[in-house]
């Protein structure tokens, strides 16, 4: 019974990692950039939600949509200003720029809003359901539900729309895609917008589940989501989802059946082990380097 309970806890945490990890993996898939500012976009999503609820008293759904909108615009702006000029520079340059953007976002928020944690306002009163001895709360169900809906929408966009087709084409070969008449810059902007919107949604869900937000809240989940993305095979969207869930469940099992001291250590140990056995990640295909 305790095992099932920890599984439920782990899946709830894992779906948040999955939402953040998808943004990492989408951006990587298309521009081969590890966007370290992604965790901070998640933080900004939580803060937008905070002000939407506290200042304007918006209910859940408008809050979620507003945060997703604001963050997708922010994601596009960041890409335009910070990453686009470096598109043809060495990869390490873009990576370091991403770290710079991350520090910039954290410190701007800290400067404007202060370093103290703020309580995220309560949007729902907690209800607990008991299913055969396993406790499931409405907050956990909400996290599952929203994550699931967003992922289905994402799959639809990628496989059933023109822009999705363009994204797949650009991720395979940018130059060939451009020759086929695809607007590469626009496609990359859309990718950043979608990835950032998913991070914002994760930010709101975290605000509801763990109602304490601060400017540095994005660092650790961002790092773990990055691990989740690599774990599943970076650049592969179902891999990011799977990686996120694996990370969440693994963490909770470590806490439940071993010791919480090893929680983060295990998360990163899993990464190392998987990369040793299967360097391309769980769902990654082995590719030989083309010469």
């Amino acid at each position: 019974m305790e095992f099932l309970q920890q599984l439920v806890n782990g899946l709830a945490l894992g779906s948040i990692y999955a939402l953040i990890a998808i943004g990492y993996t989408m951006v990587y898939g298309i521009v081969q950039l590890i966007n370290f500012a992604h965790g901070d976009i998640y933080m900004i999503g939580a803060f937008v939600g905070f002000f939407a609820v506290v200042k304007y008293g918006l209910p859940f759904l408008p809050t979620l949509l507003l945060a997703m909108l604001v963050c997708s615009v922010l994601g596009v702006i960041i890409e335009k200003i910070a990453y686009r000029p470096l598109r043809n520079s060495p990869r390490i340059t873009a990576l370091i720029t991403a770290i710079g953007v991350s520090l910039f976002l954290e410190n701007v928020v800290r400067w404007r809003l202060g370093p103290d944690p703020r309580p995220f306002p309560e949007l729902f009163s907690v209800k607990v359901f008991s299913l055969g001895g396993v406790q499931v709360s409405n907050v956990q169900l909400l996290i599952f539900g929203v994550a699931l809906v967003l992922i289905v929408i994402l799959q639809f966009i990628i496989y059933r729309t023109r822009i999705g087709k363009a994204m797949r084409a650009v991720s395979q070969d940018q130059d060939a895609a451009r020759l086929m008449g695809i607007n590469v810059d626009r496609t990359i902007s859309v990718t950043f917008a979608i990835g950032s919107a998913l991070a914002a949604a994760a930010g709101i869900l975290v605000g509801i589940a763990y109602p304490r937000i601060d400017p540095y809240m994005g660092i650790l989940p961002g790092l773990k989501a990055f691990v989740a993305a690599v774990l599943g095979g970076i650049g592969i969207i179902p891999g990011a989802m799977l990686g996120g869930l694996v990370m969440g469940v693994a963490e909770l099992m470590v806490v439940g059946f071993w010791s919480s001291d090893y929680r983060d250590a295990i998360a990163f140990a899993i990464l190392i082990i998987i990369l040793l056995i299967k360097p391309t990640g769980i769902l990654g295909k082995n590719q030989s380097e083309k010469v």
Binding site: Y210, Y216, E251, L252, V254, S260, D264
Partner: peptide, 19 residues
């Protein structure tokens, strides 16, 4: 049960305590 300084999820520890 214990936790670290930036942890936000205590469900695992609490499930054990509940038992």
């Amino acid at each position: 049960q214990t936790y670290g300084k930036d942890e936000q999820d205590f469900n695992g520890q609490l499930t054990k305590i509940k038992g």
